[in-house]
């Protein structure tokens, strides 16, 4: 049975603590000074009418992934579950996919000289029915992960309850990561 994964990022719950970033680094042995995931915070507004914008930067696992269509060696590919992965062996590190990604999710692993990005921890966790490390670790339950084909899953229920936004939806990439926008504070 194929999966229809979704990762929900609730800006209202996120506190920008970077636990996800460290968990990702530890789980995936991400080399120093490069990141598969970061959460950025930006203060909006003029004192004392302020707000904070929280943004999660990582691969959004597009259904129409530009990185896959531009890859000359098919090293970037989409699995049958719709996840985008990189075959390290056939990646020639031409960096075309890095430039093609509108989400800045890809980077060069300086130790291996291949392109790298978030995998939803597929190999080490998701394929074993565990949540991705970032989801598991999140101190405030800001991340929800699961299969949208299962109507009893938390991710399904939350998706149907909340207003969801998909990052850069106008590009037609159809991300599997959605976010629930901030409800409080100044927005600009």
């Amino acid at each position: 049975m194929q999966k229809q994964y979704r990762l929900l990022y609730d800006e209202n719950l996120c506190i920008g603590c970077q636990a996800c970033s460290i968990a990702c680094r530890v789980e995936n042995s991400v080399p120093d000074e490069v990141y598969r995931v970061q959460v950025h915070m930006q203060t909006m507004g003029i004192f004392p009418n302020l707000g904070m914008h929280y943004e999660r930067l990582s691969c959004v696992m597009c259904e129409n992934p530009p990185c896959v269509s531009v890859c000359p060696t098919n090293a970037s590919f989409q699995s049958k579950d719709g996840l985008v992965h990189i075959d390290e062996k056939s990646c020639i590190s031409c960096k075309y996919c890095i430039l093609a990604c509108p989400y800045h999710a890809r980077f060069i692993n300086p130790l291996k000289n291949v392109v790298e990005k978030c995998t939803f921890c597929y190999e080490t966790r998701v394929s074993k029915e565990l949540s991705p490390a970032c989801v598991s670790i999140c101190p405030t339950d800001a991340l929800t992960f699961g299969d949208m084909r299962q109507s009893n899953s938390l991710v399904y229920q939350k998706s149907h309850k909340e207003v969801l936004l998909f990052p850069k939806a106008h590009l037609g990439t159809k991300p599997k990561v959605a976010f629930i926008p901030n409800r409080k504070g100044a927005k600009s």
Partner: peptide
């Protein structure tokens, strides 16, 4: 299963 950045 939550933990903070320091803990991890």
């Amino acid at each position: 299963t939550s933990l903070c950045a320091k803990g991890v």
